[in-house]
Design a protein around this nucleic acid. Structure first.
Length: 302
DNA sequence: ATCCAGGAACTGT
DNA sequence: ACAGTTCATGGA
């Protein structure tokens, strides 16, 4: 990844297949998303780098991603970190051609990869945020999940106001580990969900778990085992989080309701497919289940 | 108003 | 190992 510095903005050039617009549809799927903002096909995001809040705007223009800095012009070192952040957020390290080659004859995916060519998994770079989001999303509809996340972030996350609009940083483990179940109950989290979130925050806060440590396992199954040994993290949450946070493309949240609903529509069946039916369908996707999942999800947002 | 959806832990077999 | 139950809410 190399970038060109133009002072108030930087440009990252990419050579592999990438379609910013297909990604933006996914990013714009909720109007109460609080971790970024989409306006006029531009992405606004606040992140904290080296303890400095940086608000930036991302657009695509001829084989490059343009990142403009809004609240401050960062140092070169920070610019480089932001470039890497955005690169990783759009999963530009993945050789997507391998996925296309793998599934080009697959009954379901051949349609999706033609329709959404260049779509990449939108990552949550922060593992703690990714795990919390997965836990929040357990067992409830997406809309309510977004409502709960917004309440959590607005109450406990760091805020920057720019041109009258508030942007937030996801609350840190340090903060969440110190709050009480009753505090989250007030925000309409269930007792269990509150316990799970606070428990996970404690594990991050005391250093038991972090992204680097987890990646040391260097193996999907081992990482999956580490995650599911944590209270509140079952198969679905572990696979969802691996898909969203790590570069492991065999993660497959097979029990996901979104996958089931999308497949029912795509296959035009009266019932949602059973787990066994999905297992059979997904034999063609081996090694690329995460991408298959993301392309199937994307179908829900047309 | 009633029923269903939907992940994980827990309980019982 | 496996089936049934509980949690607690929004949405149909």
């Amino acid at each position: 990844m190399k970038f060109i510095d133009c002072n108030e903005y930087i440009k990252i050039e990419y050579e592999s297949e990438f379609n910013f617009d297909h990604c933006m549809v996914y990013l714009d799927r909720s109007d109460i998303e609080c971790m970024h903002r989409v306006k006029d096909n531009e992405l606004y995001k606040l992140i904290k780098v080296d303890n400095i809040l940086i608000l930036f705007k991302v657009i695509a223009e001829n084989n490059a991603i343009k990142i403009s800095f809004l609240n401050t012009i960062p140092t070169m070192l920070i610019k480089e970190k932001i470039a890497r952040y955005v690169w990783s957020m759009f999963d530009l390290d993945t050789d997507i051609q391998q996925f296309y080659d793998k599934v080009k004859e697959d009954k379901i995916l051949k349609i999706l990869i033609n329709r959404y060519r260049g779509l990449r998994i939108i990552k949550i770079n922060d593992l703690f945020e990714g795990l919390c989001w997965a836990i929040i999303g357990q067992q409830i509809n997406l809309k309510f999940a977004y409502t709960l996340k917004k309440r959590l972030v607005e109450k406990y996350g760091e805020k920057l106001t720019f041109e009258g609009i508030n942007y937030f940083i996801f609350p840190t483990p340090d903060i969440i580990s110190q709050i009480k179940v009753e505090d989250l109950r007030k925000l309409q989290f269930t007792k269990r969900k509150s316990e799970y979130l606070i428990g996970v925050a404690k594990l991050f806060d005391d250093g038991t778990i972090n992204k680097q440590k987890l990646l040391l396992q260097n193996d999907y199954k081992k990482i999956h085992n580490v995650l599911t040994s944590i209270r509140g993290i079952g198969n679905w949450t572990a696979d969802y989080t691996i898909l969203k946070c790590l570069n492991i493309n065999c993660a497959f949240p097979i029990a996901d309701a979104g996958i089931h609903n999308a497949l029912k529509i795509i296959l035009n069946t009266s019932e949602k497919p059973t787990l066994d039916e999905i297992r059979i369908m997904s034999e063609n996707w081996q090694g690329w289940e995460a991408y298959a999942t993301f392309y199937i999800w994307r179908y829900l947002y047309d």
